[in-house]
C-alpha cells in the first residue's frame, strides 16, 4: 500500500487510473489508499464547471487546459457523464473535446459515469479529487454532467465554480430562480454570438444587482465567450476566464475564505463516509437476503408503507440508545 501511494505521488499514470477505477467500483482497499494519500492533499486549486447539456462545458474545459498549460500549470480533469438507468452502461464523450492533450504528460483526463448518484457527480469524484491532488496537479477541473436547475453538489467540492449558460434557454424568471444560478463564482455566457446573448447578460446582471452582499466582495463576473470557430477570440476569452478563476482563488486565500470552501467539502465527505460505513452494509444485506425485494413488493401491493418498514429496519440495526442511570 505504501508503495502504491508513493507511485501515485510520483504521478504514475497506471497507479492513478487504477485507484480511481477502484474508487468507482468501491473496492474496499481504497479507504486505506485514501487514508495514506490524505496528508498529501489540499494543495490544488479545484475548479468546477457546470451547466446544461450541450452548453459547451467540455469545449471550454479543453481550452482552459490549454490556457493553464500556457501558464506552466499542470492540470487534472474529471469529466462526468450520465449512467443509463436501464443497462447501467454509459457513453463518456467529454474526452472527445480534450484529446489534443492526450500526449501531454502535464495533463491527466479521466471520464467517470454518475453510476446513479444524484447531483451530477459520481461518488468517486470527491475522492478522485484527492488522488489528482496527491499526484501533484496544480489545477483540478471537475466537469459535471449536463445539469438542470438543482444539481448544485459541485459547490461541495470546488473552490471556484463556473456556471456555463447559453442564450435562448428560457425567460427572465429562470435567472431569478434558486439553485444552479446561485452557486456561480463566475458566469460564462457561451456561444455568445448567438441571438439573445445580450438579453441573457442583462438578466444575470440584474439578478446580481439585487444581491445584498458578496462574500469577500467577489461579485461573480459574467464573461461572454463567442464561437470556437473564431479561434483567436475564443482563445482570448477562455484565457481571460482562466485568469478570472485564478483571481477568484487568490481572493479566497487573501480574504481568508478558503476555510469555508474546505469546510463544505469536509462536511460532504463526512456525510458520504458515514453513509458508506453505516447505510451501505445494511442495504447490501437487505439486497442479498432478498428482504429489500420483499419490502418493495409489499409497498407495490400497498400491504405496508415505506416508513413502517424503514422503522423496522432501523430498529433491527441501530443499537438502542443507553439511557443514563439516575
Amino acid at each position: 500500500m505504501e508503495d502504491k501511494t508513493r507511485k501515485i505521488r510520483e504521478g504514475d499514470i497506471r497507479a492513478v487510473s487504477r485507484l480511481i477505477r477502484n474508487l468507482e467500483d468501491r473496492i474496499p482497499t481504497t479507504d486505506e489508499a485514501i487514508r495514506h494519500l490524505f496528508p498529501f492533499t489540499g494543495k490544488a486549486h479545484i475548479i468546477g464547471i457546470t451547466g446544461s447539456p450541450g452548453a459547451g462545458k467540455s469545449t471550454l474545459t479543453d481550452e482552459l487546459i490549454y490556457a493553464f498549460r500556457q501558464m506552466g500549470k499542470t492540470v487534472g480533469v474529471m469529466a462526468v457523464d450520465p449512467t443509463s438507468p436501464f443497462s447501467g452502461g454509459a457513453i463518456l464523450g467529454d474526452r472527445i473535446r480534450m484529446q489534443r492533450h492526450a500526449e501531454d504528460p502535464g495533463v491527466f483526463v479521466r471520464s467517470l459515469a454518475t453510476r446513479g448518484a444524484l447531483g451530477g457527480l459520481s461518488k468517486a469524484v470527491g475522492e478522485g479529487i484527492h488522488v489528482l491532488d496527491a499526484m501533484g496537479k496544480d489545477i483540478i477541473i471537475v466537469e459535471t454532467v449536463g445539469t438542470g436547475q438543482q444539481e448544485v453538489e459541485i459547490i461541495d467540492h470546488a473552490h471556484t465554480v463556473i456556471v456555463v449558460l447559453v442564450p435562448g434557454m428560457g425567460d427572465e424568471i429562470q435567472a431569478i430562480k434558486a439553485g444552479i444560478l446561485e452557486i456561480a463564482d463566475i458566469f460564462v455566457i457561451n456561444k455568445a454570438d448567438r441571438e439573445g446573448a445580450g438579453k441573457l447578460f442583462k438578466e444575470i446582471r440584474g439578478s446580481l444587482d439585487m444581491a445584498k452582499n458578496f462574500p469577500g466582495g467577489w461579485r461573480p463576473p459574467i464573461l461572454m465567450v463567442e464561437s470556437l470557430f473564431e479561434t483567436h477570440s475564443f482563445s482570448q476569452s477562455v484565457a481571460e476566464l482562466a485568469q478570472k478563476t485564478l483571481d477568484h482563488h487568490q481572493l479566497l486565500i487573501d480574504k481568508d475564505l478558503m476555510g469555508d470552501r474546505k469546510r463544505r467539502k469536509a462536511t460532504a465527505e463526512m456525510n458520504e463516509a458515514i453513509r458508506a460505513a453505516v447505510l451501505e452494509p445494511v442495504l447490501d444485506e437487505l439486497v442479498s437476503s432478498g428482504r429489500l425485494d420483499e419490502m418493495i413488493q409489499k409497498l407495490v401491493d400497498r400491504a405496508s408503507d415505506p416508513y413502517t418498514m424503514a422503522a423496522e429496519v432501523a430498529k433491527q440495526y441501530l443499537a438502542p440508545k443507553k439511557t443514563e442511570e439516575p
Binding site: 499514470i13 497506471r14 487510473s17 449512467t83 474526452r95 484529446q99 492526450a102 500526449e103 471520464s111
Partner: peptide
C-alpha cells in the same frame, strides 16, 4: 462504460487515453 475518442486519433493518443481511462 464506453469512452469514445472521436476521429483522427494517433496511436499515441489512443494508447495514452486508454491508460488514463
Amino acid at each position: 462504460e464506453v469512452i469514445y475518442t472521436g476521429c483522427h486519433q494517433t496511436p499515441e493518443q489512443i494508447a495514452s487515453a486508454a491508460i488514463q481511462e
